[in-house]
Design a protein around this nucleic acid. Sequence first.
DNA 1: CAATAAACATGACATATATCATGTTTATGA
DNA 2: TCATAAACATGATATATGTCATGTTTATTG
Lengths: 206, 206
Amino acid sequence: MLQELTETRYGKHDYIFREGDPTEYFHIVKEGTVKCVKSTPEGKECTLKMLMPGDLFCCDAAAFDGASHPGSAQPMGDVSILRMKKKSYFEMLRRNPDAAMEVIKYLGNRLNEAQEKTKDLALDRADQRLASLLVDLAARNGIADPNGIRLTVRMTRQDMANMIGITTETTIRIMSKFKRDRLVSGTANRLLIRDLKGLKALASAS
Amino acid sequence: MLQELTETRYGKHDYIFREGDPTEYFHIVKEGTVKCVKSTPEGKECTLKMLMPGDLFCCDAAAFDGASHPGSAQPMGDVSILRMKKKSYFEMLRRNPDAAMEVIKYLGNRLNEAQEKTKDLALDRADQRLASLLVDLAARNGIADPNGIRLTVRMTRQDMANMIGITTETTIRIMSKFKRDRLVSGTANRLLIRDLKGLKALASAS
DNA sequence: CAATAAACATGACATATATCATGTTTATGA
DNA sequence: TCATAAACATGATATATGTCATGTTTATTG
């Protein structure tokens, strides 16, 4: 069975798949970070989710039902992806109730997250959403550092903007303010969360 | 097995459950419309989804994983709800791979929808989001009418506002403009979509 | 039916965020 | 290492939407 699982490596300029491509495979992140992106005809982009090792996606697990990917998947730097034919994966789930239940719980959890994000977009200000994003990434992608929590994924201001539905300029302005307030420091290559509590306070001030 | 499925009726001032309540049951809408709502400490509300007959929710199906409801469920008018103990439901799924696969597809579909909504909130203007909402409701809740499509669910401007993350006043202003442009007519009790194509054009002008 | 509350409507004004422009710093790759 | 592009930064201005205030119309209920 396991020979159906193949591994592929991608670099930051590749696409793992594009919006509209047929959903032939299930994907699992083995190493690195992958972003799920939807874009408009005019080139505006919205990043739905950053996927870390262990996450499955297709794209963004949304295509368990559906014939084509509702968004594209792009690596953030070098990544390694495991792939399995959708048909094989479904057969495996059908034969393995425990695995199916795990997937149900995983999807429930993902739906939950998506709805939390909906609420943030609908009700929070830009600075609160950015603070939420940084808190979330600190937990999922951060490693301890003498001065706080360092994010291992390389994220530009533009990447952040796309994740919270604001412009790059606004993100830069808010990040500059966060820097002045000693909440964060550094830029894409070395982003450091200096005051997690402060960011959490801002994020939940809704 | 079926004796575990109980039916309850609710009126528009009831709660089916509240945010934070333990998730003891799975719910299915039998009759009527239910809204899933998240609210902030200051009383701002965000409606995540309108559930129609056949939809399952817990709340909003997001609690397949999780001990407490991430949002509350409120009837829009009179509704009838079917309920089953969460434990029984999980056991049933474990024994019935076809049902489990159906749930996986359903959740994938719901996640997909949620992400589409995220994109709309992040990238579209208020009038486009309102047009999207009306198009969606026309398909899911509308019945043919000599002058267009009539919505059977009673929805105030405030209800709509909560669904798309804008204020009641802005919703009223946009609806007034839609009325002037002959796209819609009527108020909560008798909402009529007069020009579906026009609304679709507006909605997808992103 | 009258009394009351909810929904709808609209103006004046405030403000968060977008847009456009321009410059500096930092990273990248030949 | 130099040349080029990407990322970061910041000001000026525009604009969509929020906020507050006030009035009318439409439902609801005793």
